[in-house]
Design a protein around this nucleic acid. Sequence first.
DNA 1: GAATTCACTGGGCAACCTGTACAGCGATGG
DNA 2: CCATCGCTGTACAGGTTGCCCAGTGAATTC
Lengths: 162, 162
Amino acid sequence: MSIDGLDGRLLVLLAREPRIGVLEASRRLGVARGTVQARLDRLRSSGVIRGFGPNVDPAALGYPVTAFATLEIKQGQGADVRAHLDTVPEVLELHTTTGQGDMLCRLVARSNADLQRVIDRVVGFEGIVRASTAIVMENPVPLRIIPLVEQAADDHERGHRA
Amino acid sequence: MSIDGLDGRLLVLLAREPRIGVLEASRRLGVARGTVQARLDRLRSSGVIRGFGPNVDPAALGYPVTAFATLEIKQGQGADVRAHLDTVPEVLELHTTTGQGDMLCRLVARSNADLQRVIDRVVGFEGIVRASTAIVMENPVPLRIIPLVEQAADDHERGHRA
DNA sequence: GAATTCACTGGGCAACCTGTACAGCGATGG
DNA sequence: CCATCGCTGTACAGGTTGCCCAGTGAATTC
């Protein structure tokens, strides 16, 4: 699946002003409404757009502290550890990785003190050998996708022109 | 800012079925439409809901490889490095952290080979002393917020009942 | 070269939803 | 006891959605 310039502009538009509807988007993009509708359907069914879930800010929920924990897992305990971490609400995401650690997870907590409780809960589990935590101080680049979308669209255009 | 049970149910509902409107949400929650509207306004203006941007899947855009890079920065070069990384589309997010590394960033690439190009571009910059990269193999817990929302709502309810 | 396929356009329709406003009502708190 | 606050139920106008269609142009196929 790849996207063309119109898809790219549509995605950027939606990312910047999520509240606009299909009609308004078609006006902004200078195409017919049906076109926008068809593009959106295609982007959704092809999986490029997973959904339009609300972006909830953990800090506003009372969890202003974010941290990343690298976990080392005892051989063969991977599945158990995954299941365990899945039950901890403060674990916002979990990845298994190559490298010295075996897993990397993103945590949030109510305070630095509370982070200790979260970490204890995370690592207090048979199968986790060691954990090293890095507390997030600043977030200079918040999770974003627009630059990548623009690049993907550009690549496609260039490919056609070439 | 904290949320009560109704806010929690509303957020969960929106997370599960983002396409439903205010009217449908009010029907599901068993409250008046105006109530849902007021709650939504409050959640938005208080920052709990940042927006409703589309969730774009980098893999579907042609970037199926994800990696986390820990960067060590030369003293005083932080701002320059941030500005540099901000210009790299494959850098999806960047955090400054405590711990042995100074920064942690999430990268995507078109392939493992392409990841080398991305990393070269990321670290090919005056001010970055060392980088260690962990490639993501699996993502057992994708970025989520619902469990935390439920816990925050429960906490609030319990606080009132107590 | 001709036929076919495909995406986009521009239009129309009924049904629905949104934004906004208002009065009534019960609970909360001073 | 009174005022405030949030929720309910209702109403209205306007915009939007989902869906349909025929026509056009360009690219693909035979």
